[in-house]
């Protein structure tokens, strides 16, 4: 049994003292290198869950333990990517990817002297996601899918132990999305890290994750936990098989039940 990497122990959260709880009594544990997907109706507190994991928000009640320590501030071991690529338009793709190394230790203090080495490392990542040849282009010269690839590189360049993805593929077309699923699958397979993926897309969750959690509408609770037993490595064709559809269907029923309630 691998180590528990993230542990939520009866976590409650509200944004200010007079407001209602956004998250209610969440208890989950995530193994190191586990790929977790969180699905649920919009506004259910999925993004809040991410903020709790990364230490951007402290819980109102309960404890969050990440990597053996109780979370009390930004963790610095996380990489994040969102629905919008959020690249800096005045930086080239390469410089955008290098940004975290200018901020996070131990890279920050020797960034100037080791810039070349770091640039090589960033380039390797950039080629892995299929952006080689585009590293000196500016974000507006890239398509939406390419920008999102760059955004994922930026989230991974400092080799974070934890990757947080908040609907990263939601704004892309279906084909690009499936391509990027595979990119993410391969990155995770080659050099494992723990992933928390927040998504609306049940096929995406089923294809990528080891475990899918279904959240209720606000206040968010964990309603169901579903292990995805599909064999790895998974080919995109698996999404058209009977067992895959069964899992998606099962998850869909959970969501359907929430929407009716």
């Amino acid at each position: 049994m691998p180590n528990q990497f993230i542990e939520f122990d009866r976590v409650w959260l509200k944004y200010n003292p007079t407001a209602d709880f956004v998250i209610e009594e969440i208890t989950v544990s995530i193994r190191e290198h586990e790929f977790v997907a969180i699905v649920g109706p919009s506004g259910c507190g999925k993004s809040t869950f991410m903020k709790l994991c990364t230490g951007l928000k402290p819980p109102t009640q309960g404890t969050v333990i990440v990597d053996g320590r109780e979370v009390s501030g930004p963790l610095k071991i996380t990489g994040m990517a969102f629905q919008a690529p959020n690249l800096l338009p005045w930086r080239t793709t390469l410089d955008n990817v290098l940004l975290p190394l200018e901020i996070v230790e131990p890279y920050k203090s020797n960034f100037r002297s080791k810039r070349k080495e770091y640039a090589e490392r960033a380039m390797k990542l950039i080629s892995t996601v299929g952006l080689a040849g585009w590293e000196h282009k500016f974000p507006w010269e890239l398509s939406g899918g390419m920008q999102q690839r760059a955004s994922i590189c930026r989230a991974l360049v400092h080799e974070p132990k934890l990757l947080m993805l908040d609907e990263p593929f939601a704004a892309l077309d279906a084909f690009t999305r499936e391509e990027l699923w595979c990119v993410l699958r391969d990155l995770h397979a080659v050099d494992p890290f723990t992933v928390v993926l927040v998504t609306h897309d049940l096929r995406e969750a089923t294809f990528l994750a080891d475990t899918v959690y279904v959240m209720s509408k606000r206040p968010g609770r964990i309603l169901a936990k579903r292990d995805i037993e599909l064999q790895r490595p998974r080919d995109i064709d698996v999404t058209y098989t009977e067992p895959f559809s069964k899992i998606v269907h099962e998850l869909r029923e959970h969501i359907g039940a929430i929407r009716k309630s």
Binding site: K51, T54, L56, F82, L88, P100, A155, H158, M164
Partner: peptide, 20 residues
């Protein structure tokens, strides 16, 4: 979101101001 990306890395307010 961009601010979150930087804050999660432990960037200070001054760093966020300077870099972004």
């Amino acid at each position: 979101e961009l601010e979150d990306v930087l804050r999660a890395l432990g960037a200070s307010r001054v760093e966020i101001l300077r870099k972004v």
